[in-house]
Amino acid sequence: MTLELHEVAVAPKGAGPLFPPITLTVRPGEVATVMGPSGIGKSTLLDAVGAHLAHGFTLSGSIRLDGRDLLPLPPETRRVGLMFQEAVLFPHLSVGDNLAFGLARSVRGRAARRAAVEAALDRAGLADLYDRDPATLSGGQRSRAALMRTLLAEPRALLLDEPFSKLDATLRGDLRAFTFTHIRSRKISALLVTHDPADVEATGGSVIELTEWAPRGSTRECPHHTRRRNPDPERGETP
């Protein structure tokens, strides 16, 4: 499951691209990191991969997953999972039903589906919480439930939009390890947006840094500002 971005650039209506075109290959099980100042368009890049761009944005370049062109596909058939800063659980469904919402259709039969959800809850340390109201879970529990819901949908790629930034330090480490372990064992290619050097250190994957694409709206050719490098903990990676 390889995610390939080729010369991808996103431009808001009537303006130049937000950042210089990005070319990037994320191998199965790899977590690639996107860094850059606030407002540069990191989340917009994730929206482009997940097909969640708002109206008016134009997208150029190509995005492929396992060789398949993603651009013509709507979000529900791209098989690209999504994790937000906060765990966005459906407030009207119980914890278990949230997971059942995500569970792939290939698991058939009531009993089998129930068992799959129970097993996932168990793996996330949420055993016996099937009928709980998601609003009553702790922050860490909510995040693990959201991750399990995403994984049950059997995504081929995963987009992580600062998923650990709202958690306290200990919880952050636990959840990061939990998330990355699952990504590696399932050979999912993941794209992580973060400001936290510790995240980058833990990924061990490639890092893309977005920089501003010279005067907004100008058509002037700009040098390729995108750098690709491996994280260097010695230098104390900062966004």
């Binding site: 690209v80 999504l82 995500g102």
Partner: peptide, 22 residues
Amino acid sequence: DPRLVRAAGSLGAGPWRRLFTV
């Protein structure tokens, strides 16, 4: 919250399922 709808979409729910179940 638009993230609810996006989350549903990324979990494989099409537009009608997003409307009726979320």
